[in-house]
Amino acid sequence: MRLAELSKRSGVSAATIKYYLREGLLAPGRQINATTAEYDEDHLRRLRLVRALIQVGRVPVATAREVLKHIDDDSLGRTIRLGAALWALPQAPEPDDDDEEVRAAHREVEQVMERLGWSNAQALSTISPAHRSLVVAVATLRRLGYAWDAELMLPYAQLMHQAAVRDLDFVETQPSEAEKVETAVAAAILFEPVLRALHRLAQEEESARRYGFE
């Protein structure tokens, strides 16, 4: 397809596509002549991911480029490739390990992982941004007087594990390694708002069931 068709099918303006090409976020098309290139379905798929990262996720161009670099690095195994791509996304700040509540949060999170048998997550805990984000969130809750501990977290973690199984089952339906990782990254940007909205809708439904509308 030519640039105009790529623009029409993706919903991204031709000028923006040219910008993504200049910034290395999109591979060059196959050159037909000095002024015309042809693009394919891989370009369309990648363009949708770039759009999700930049327009929806508000990820800076340099960060998007880093994420895409990891997605395209076929020298890595799938777990490391996916982890590297997701970890390149903007993350929570490092927790202050001198803070008493941070230390307590670390202990509670560790208990959850031990009780669930998440040995792989434990092995990655020192470098995982998700682990860091959870510790920061739990420490903040505790600092504000909410006694959030392993016992309270455990059923939520079990539900999230079920969600993760469904996530990766969906990822497995993609035909290539790059598409599998792309799908997982897109899910991190696009599906998490869906999960938050479903959670709130479920709360509204359960509240109405328990307490009615009065």
Rank of each mutant, 00 (worst) to 15 (best):
A52P: 03
S128R: 07
S128W: 08
A164K: 06
D99F: 00
L116K: 06
A130T: 15
W118D: 11
L25M: 11
G29S: 12
L53F: 08
H199K: 15
L3S: 11
A147C: 02
L21I: 08
V194F: 11
S10L: 05
R210M: 01
A186P: 02
A202G: 15
G57L: 01
A27C: 02
A164I: 12
R65D: 01
G29C: 11
V112T: 07
T140G: 03
V185T: 07
V56K: 12
D40I: 12
D96T: 04
T126P: 00
E214G: 15
L53W: 03
V171Q: 00
R65P: 01
L144K: 04
R209V: 04
S207Y: 06
A130D: 12
M160Y: 04
V61A: 04
V135T: 07
L168N: 00
E38M: 12
E23D: 06
R210P: 00
A184E: 06
R51G: 06
Q203H: 14
R103L: 05
D74M: 10
S125K: 15
L25K: 13
N33Q: 08
A104T: 07
P60Y: 09
K8N: 07
R2T: 06
I32E: 15
L134M: 15
T173Q: 11
I189S: 05
P155W: 00
E94L: 12
A85V: 13
E23C: 08
A85P: 06
V136H: 04
T79V: 15
L21K: 06
L86P: 08
E177W: 14
L159H: 15
T183F: 14
F191R: 10
E214I: 01
R2G: 08
L76T: 02
R166W: 06
P175Y: 14
A164Y: 12
E214R: 04
H70W: 09
R81H: 05
G212P: 01
